[in-house]
């Protein structure tokens, strides 16, 4: 059933996300054309200059906002689909609460990753000309060659990507947990959800600080300082992943508990 939930979740979110991504790419292409026209020979009419400037500003705002918009849409989707009227349909489907949570978290993470890709594509598109792209290709080639010459660099990049994916899942779970807590109350659900999110962030920070202190108390910091770079990197990655797993697990447990035991549909 998780597969079916994922299919419908993707379809439901794609009909909002794809047009946004499409508009972002279109604005990027327009910004590229505008920049070329403004930099071209001869005087550009004032009206066209204003329009070009607006398009470039729109591109800048879009690039800054696309990540936030994606988060906003995913948060609203979780709330509307599981905690408001649509919840009457979703929570009476013959699927477990766990499948419901996983479908939301996996699809949200996918769109977070997609918005990052769109940001990169937008930057490439706005700076598009043959010389620039050739230069980007040359730089990328040099980076790849340098990486393959150095030991562990490719693995380190894979580890960073894995940590980013895990971080994306945990972020999504923390939004879901906060919304589930806030919507268990009868009134001021969104305000209480924001409070719950702040509370979860503080708890996460306290936990991280406590674990770091604990590591210091048992002399782990001295051991850490004596490690080679790559071993230190690995320990940092494992510690980071461990912390994220604990926080993600806690947020998952909170979300599952509130959806199962404290559901309060409007």
């Amino acid at each position: 059933m998780l597969g079916k939930l994922l299919k419908h979740e993707l379809r439901a979110t794609a009909h909002t996300m794809l047009p946004i991504f499409g508009v972002m790419l279109l604005v990027s292409a327009l910004a590229n054309v505008c920049a070329r026209l403004m930099n071209g020979p001869g005087n550009t009419p004032v009206v066209l200059t204003i329009i070009f400037t607006l398009v470039v500003i729109l591109f800048g705002v879009g690039l800054f906002a696309i990540g936030l918009v994606t988060v906003f849409i995913m948060v609203r989707r979780f709330r509307d689909n599981l905690l408001r009227d649509e919840g009457y349909i979703m929570h009476t489907l013959p699927v477990s609460v766990h499948a419901q949570i996983w479908s939301k978290v996996l699809v949200s993470s996918l769109w977070y990753a997609a918005s990052s890709v769109i940001m990169v594509l937008s930057v490439l598109l706005v700076s598009w000309d043959v010389d620039t792209i050739m230069e980007i290709g040359n730089v990328a080639g040099r980076i790849i060659r340098a990486m393959t010459r150095e030991d562990h660099v490719a693995e380190m990049i894979a580890e960073v990507l894995a940590l980013l994916a895990l971080g994306s899942l945990v972020t999504s779970l923390s939004f879901d947990a906060a919304l589930s807590i806030g919507h268990a109350f009868a009134k001021n659900k969104m305000a209480l959800s924001v409070l719950a999110f702040v509370g979860l962030l503080i708890l996460g920070e306290v936990f991280t600080y406590y674990m770091a202190s604990l590591a210091g108390d048992i002399g782990s910091l001295e051991t850490f300082a004596s490690l080679t770079f790559i071993k230190g990197w690995r320990v940092t990655c494992v510690a980071g992943a461990g912390l994220m797993l604990v926080m993600g697990g806690a947020c998952y447990g909170i979300t599952a508990f509130f959806l199962k035991r404290k559901l309060n549909l409007e």
Partner: peptide
């Protein structure tokens, strides 16, 4: 159990055909 809630709660972005597909997938 087939449940009719007291309020309208259909996903409004779907078409009637997609809604039937949704019900067929799960039930």
């Amino acid at each position: 159990v087939s449940y009719l809630p007291e309020r309208s709660c259909l996903p409004d972005w779907m078409t009637a055909g997609e809604l039937m597909g949704f019900y067929k997938d799960f039930y």
